[in-house]
Design a protein around this nucleic acid. Structure first.
Lengths: 199, 199
DNA sequence: CCAGAGTCTTGACACTCGTCAAGACTTCGG
DNA sequence: CCGAAGTCTTGACGAGTGTCAAGACTCTGG
C-alpha cells in the first residue's frame, strides 16, 4: 500500500545523505548514481524511484545541505557579549568547521564553480550564496554593534573577503599545509577589525 | 623526416590553445579529448601523438595558461605615479579582465576547486596560486609605497581577500547580474585602503 | 490468507569516454 | 623519384555513465 509520505521523504533524505557523502569525497563531476547507491543501503535503480533524474537529486541535495549549515554561527552571535569575545569565538568556529566538515566545504566550492558552467545549478547556488552572505552579515554586524562602531563595507564585500580567506585556508588545509589553520584564525582576527570605521 | 622541435612545440601549443578554449567553455569535467580536437584543426587521435595522456595535456595547458596571465597588472604597477591613480587603474583593469577573459577565469576557479579532489592537479594549482599571490602583492605593496603607509595584512591574506571579491564578481557577472562590474570596482576602491595602516 | 499496491533489484539500452593500433597521407633525403 | 621516417586519421576496444523496463520481493487491507 501507499507508504506514509513521511517515510518517502525519509528515503529521499537518506539518499541525499549518501549523495552528499559521495559528493564530498569525489566531487560533483566524478559522482555517479551507482556510487551514491553503493554508499547507501539501496541499489542503483532506486534513485529513479525517488528522483526524476540526476539533476533533481543533486538539486535536492543542495537544498538539504543548505538547510543545515546557514545557521552555523548563530550561537556565536547570540552568546558573545563583547566584540573581542565574538571575534575570537567566530575565528575558532571557522577553524573548527573547516576541519570537521572539509568535504562539505569543498563540495560547496565545487558546486559554486560548476554553476559557472551549468546553468541548471545556478539558481540554487545563488540562493545559497545569499544565505551565506546573510549568515556572515549577522556575525559582522553584531561584531560592529558590540564594538560600538560602524561598518565600512557592504554585506556582499564582507562576505566575499571572508569567503576568500576561508577558501584559501581550505585549499591549503587539504593540501596538507600545517600552517593553514593558524593562518585562518590569524587572518580573521586581523581582518575583521579592518572592516570597522576608524572613528 | 624528423620535424623541427620548434614545430612540434607549436603543435603542442596549438592543441593547448584549443584545449583552453574548450575548457573555458565547458569546464574541466565536461571537456573531452574529442571536443578539444573538434575545436582544433586535428582529429581526436592526434592528441596522443603529442601528449602521453589527458593528464599531461591538462597539465601542459595549465602551465601554458599561467605563463600568460601572471603579469597582467605589471603595467599598472609600473605606470602609476600616485596611490589613487594606481588604485583606479587596478580596479579598472580588474573589471576589464573579468569581462574580456571570463571563460579563462572561471576555468581557473574550476581547476583550483577540482584540485581539492584530484591530487594530480594540486602541485600545479598551488604553484599558480603562489604566482597570483605574488602578482597581487606587487600591486598592493606598490600601492602602499605610493601612499607612504604600511600594510597591515600579509601577502596571503591580501590575495585571499581580493580573490574572494573577484570570484564573487565573476559569479554574479556570469549569472547576468548587471551590477556585478560596478560592485567589483567599488569594492576594490573601498577595500584596498583598508589594508593600509591608519597612521 | 491472499490479492494487489508499493517498493526495490536486476539487467539491459544507448551513449560517451580515454586509449590505442593499423594504416593512409605527407615530407624530404638520397 | 622513390623509399623511409614522420605525421595524422580512422575505427575499434573496454569501461563507465544515466536511464528505464521487467520482474521479484514486501507489506497491508479485506
Amino acid at each position: 500500500m501507499a507508504r506514509d509520505a513521511r517515510t518517502r521523504e525519509a528515503r529521499r533524505d537518506a539518499l541525499a545523505e549518501s549523495a552528499l557523502t559521495t559528493l564530498g569525497t569525489l566531487g560533483y563531476a566524478r559522482t555517479s548514481l551507482r556510487e551514491i547507491a553503493a554508499n547507501s543501503e539501496f541499489s542503483h535503480g532506486v534513485v529513479h524511484y525517488y528522483f526524476r533524474d540526476k539533476t533533481e537529486l543533486i538539486t535536492y541535495c543542495v537544498r538539504y545541505y543548505k538547510a543545515r549549515c546557514v545557521h552555523r554561527y548563530d550561537a556565536v552571535v547570540d552568546d558573545s557579549r563583547t566584540a573581542d569575545g565574538l571575534l575570537a569565538a567566530f575565528a575558532d568556529k571557522l577553524v573548527e568547521t573547516l576541519v570537521d566538515e572539509a568535504p562539505m566545504h569543498r563540495l560547496w566550492y565545487d558546486l559554486r564553480t560548476t554553476s559557472m558552467f551549468e546553468e541548471a545549478l545556478r539558481a540554487d547556488v545563488v540562493a545559497i550564496d545569499a544565505s551565506l552572505q546573510d549568515m556572515v552579515w549577522r556575525v559582522v554586524s553584531r561584531y560592529a554593534e558590540l564594538a560600538g562602531r560602524e561598518l565600512v563595507v557592504s554585506p556582499g564585500v564582507a562576505y566575499a573577503m571572508l569567503d576568500g580567506v576561508f577558501e584559501r585556508a581550505l585549499l591549503r588545509h587539504l593540501a596538507g599545509e600545517a600552517g593553514a589553520l593558524d593562518e585562518l584564525r590569524g587572518a580573521v582576527l586581523g581582518a575583521l577589525p579592518l572592516l570597522l570605521h576608524a572613528g
